[in-house]
Design a protein around this nucleic acid. Structure first.
Lengths: 342, 342
DNA sequence: GTGAAAGCGCTAACAG
DNA sequence: CTGTTAGCGCTTTCAC
């Protein structure tokens, strides 16, 4: 009834002088409604600014039209990692037009907090599916989600052969390959790879590609891979170590933050980039263009990845036909931090 | 019924051999339940891994236990601004323990997209309230939300005297004050302020504080404030201009990204920081420690701000008693990018 | 073409 | 103390 609260379908119905089921059919585009009725309903709905209650629809349909994401913050991790922002951008591009929402949960690093978050999402039925990022070595999330019956899609490469649906760029190796070849072409022979945390799947993947490409070109890569467990902060230490020994002429970093830290470390040690040392990052965050020298880096199509992941999940939920979103392959963006080997 | 679907309250009731209302009372901690019954119910619920359906509860209570946030991306804005990440961290610290969710909506810069997002949130009844950030000059969001009847809390300073509830640090001016005084103490006399986009309220606020502090110390600040409309990318240009004229010995930047861009610009022009030029940022993003020289910057308690905002909104919704979260005042973090005037 | 009525999973009166 | 029942706002058979 009138006055204060939000209007309901019956308010619209009485204003239009029809039954509630007529209103329902109209808003859901069902057939069996005369044009006259349809218009009266539409007019009434517009006048009342009425839209079906998401909760009521959700209860009825046993579908919330919301997807979930749980992010683990710290320890040591910088809140949420920066690529996250671009990913969400892509995800939302698929969700918003379809009236889906994205429910975010940031959890602490405490044991079990993450699992509890997924459990709650599933048991309370708050979302229809979840998106996963930051694939981990020995990742237990897939098994958990399967157990909970929550549809899930991973952005990235699954650990081992977890049968979890996942999305990846076409030619996922292309960027690193280009990076190494770029370096080789510039005469670099001692190239080091400073990898990220060993707990992340992409760390191993990228390291492997790095070695492969070097191998194909007749170089023994092993001594050049620094098997650390590097965060941005740790990267500085890694660089210092590297520069102390038989000095590489180029370093590839696992991500842009590490590369920026590496840039600073080099500078601090009086090593000029790119004259004495070439540096390559990974991701092409906005940051890469802000530093000096501007960072040569492997660009990832984070937005495309987010979009693709959302589509695949939506498709699994029967919301969308198929999922042919093209994710651009990673590509090397050459800026100022690389140059010829001296 | 058994088998496949999610268990419902009646599954629990029959398993425990009681009525559904008994189960309801138990999970909601109502009185009038014998200990024996309570335990049988709890056991049954645990066995079935049952938790009340969030949707059903929401429909019943006309409360979703979810808060919303709509973020405007671009044009020109870097996806989502970095401080956002810390803010969300703080927000979730209040929401998660209370079973509240955070619904995120990222919208494009197109005219009306933002308003449409709020409208949908309100009309579909997807959230109980919204959190606002990035207070804008002539901000229309408050009026809109008021119109929509959606409770809202702003993180930051409202434009003009919008009566929107908002949260701020205690002593909001302290950080900038400390920054200017730090510079003055080191003999700087020509200090410039490179401000952010004029559309943001904090731009004007910070600029005003900057002038005030300088004025209190007997300096005429006007020529030193660069009235641009600076993004991180634009900051480089601003710095170049500044360094071309009667050169300042120190520059304060509206945020850390701009400061980093400024650092690079200075370096590109052969100006040494901090020897020839001191640089101060704002926010203390993780980035500030990664660059060289490490950035002296005004730290903001973003996590505290997020927490406080969430609490105020939760309080307005009657979910929590009062909202006495203390937000630490901004404070200057002195690192390497500042030094004595030469 | 249209409307009446059942029911999604839950909570809150109200009886017993 | 415990169970029965009426809806919350919507969609969907199923009669008319």
């Amino acid at each position: 009834m009138g006055g204060s609260g939000k209007p309901t379908i019956s308010d619209v119905a009485s204003l239009a002088g029809v039954s509630v089921s007529a209103v329902s059919k109209v808003v859901n585009g069902k057939s069996g409604i005369s044009t006259a009725t349809r218009e009266r309903v539409l007019a009434a709905a517009a006048k009342l600014r009425w839209t079906p209650s998401a909760t009521a629809v959700a209860l009825r349909a046993a579908r919330t039209r919301a997807l979930g994401m749980v992010l683990r913050r710290g320890p040591g991790l910088p809140g949420t990692d920066p690529p996250f922002t671009l990913l969400v951008d892509g995800i939302e591009r698929e969700l918003t037009p379809r009236g889906y929402g994205l429910l975010l949960h940031v959890v602490g690093g405490e044991q079990g907090a993450e699992e509890a978050a997924y459990r709650r999402l599933a048991e309370e039925g708050r979302v229809d599916g979840v998106l996963l990022t930051g694939s981990r070595v020995g990742d237990t999330r897939f098994a958990l989600l399967r157990d909970l019956g929550l549809p899930a899609v991973l952005v990235g490469t699954p650990w081992d052969d977890d049968p979890i649906p996942s999305v990846r760029a076409t030619h996922p190796d292309r960027g690193i390959r280009q990076a190494v070849e770029h370096l080789l072409r510039h005469g670099h022979r001692r190239i080091a790879y400073l990898c990220g945390p060993g707990s992340r799947v992409h760390t191993h993947h990228r390291k492997r590609v790095f070695k492969e490409v070097l191998g194909e070109n007749g170089f023994v890569p092993s001594p050049s891979v620094v098997d650390g467990d590097f965060t941005p902060a740790g990267a500085a230490v890694g660089v210092a170590d590297l520069l102390a020994g038989p000095r590489p002429t180029a370093i590839l970093f696992a991500d842009d933050s590490m590369a920026v830290a590496g840039l600073s470390a080099a500078r601090r040690l009086g090593v000029d980039v790119p004259r004495e040392l070439s540096v390559i990052g990974h991701d092409d965050l906005p940051l890469s263009e802000l530093v000096h020298p501007r960072l040569t880096t492997v660009r990832q199509d984070l937005v495309g990845l987010g979009q693709a992941a959302a589509r695949v999940l939506l498709a699994a939920l029967g919301e969308v036909e198929d999922a042919p979103v093209r994710v651009n392959p990673p590509e090397l963006v050459i800026r100022e931090s690389t140059g010829p080997a001296r």
